[in-house]
């Protein structure tokens, strides 16, 4: 099993619903967020192109944050989901330094926090909160090993890219372009 997410940059309008849904679902403290939207403008006026990306932890297959954690608090859960056990985290910040996507932050309570692909929902057979709430249905979640899952179907006939693949992290967010 390999959980992954596909983000359709052609459908995303950058409304930020995924960000708010995540903050509500996961009690993210005020001023922090586990997912965010990047609005990327390319080119010189008047020939501009615009891309919206709903970004979060890439749940990398070769995750540097898990490797550098001195206590094993950062670990890989079922389906390749990268999570942090709060009571094992000492807050040293090594994993924050190791993430090329700056997807982790130091929670005001001390431990390091990040996107969990809503593991608590996924275990109940639900989708992550951001996926459920997206009004344009641009987020697709599921098991890459299952050819009929939402995410497998989404990336099957589309061109996609991953972010900073040269970092060698084998990221598992697929951006449909």
């Amino acid at each position: 099993m390999r959980y992954a997410m596909a983000i359709d940059t052609k459908k995303c309008v950058g409304c930020g619903d995924c960000v708010v849904a995540c903050q509500t679902e996961n009690n993210v403290p005020h001023g922090y967020c586990r997912d965010w939207i990047v609005e990327s403008v390319d080119g010189t006026y008047p020939s501009l192109s615009l891309e919206f990306r709903s970004e979060r932890c890439n749940h990398c297959d070769n995750s540097p944050c898990v490797r550098c954690c001195p206590t094993g608090a950062s670990h890989i859960e079922e389906g390749g989901i990268v999570t942090v056990t709060h009571h094992k985290c000492i807050g040293c910040g090594a994993c924050i330094q190791s993430c090329p996507y700056d997807a982790r932050y130091s929670h005001p309570e001390g431990y390091v926090d990040k996107c969990t692909f809503c593991l608590h929902r996924v275990q109940k057979g639900q989708s992550p909160a951001c996926v459920d709430v997206c009004p344009t249905r641009c987020l697709h979640f599921g098991d890459l090993d299952d050819p009929n899952s939402d995410v497998s179907l989404a990336i099957k006939d589309r061109k996609w890219k991953t972010l900073a693949p040269e970092a060698g992290t084998d990221p598992q967010l697929y951006f449909l372009t």
Binding site: C33, I37, D42, T44, G93, Q97, D102, S106
Partner: peptide, 23 residues
């Protein structure tokens, strides 16, 4: 030219605008 904007208003302490977690 490439211009990037965080439209979700991401401004996480010590992470944005650039990382500063180790003092």
């Amino acid at each position: 030219m490439k211009e990037e904007l965080f439209v979700s208003g991401r401004n996480i302490p010590n992470i944005d605008p650039y990382l500063n977690i180790w003092h």
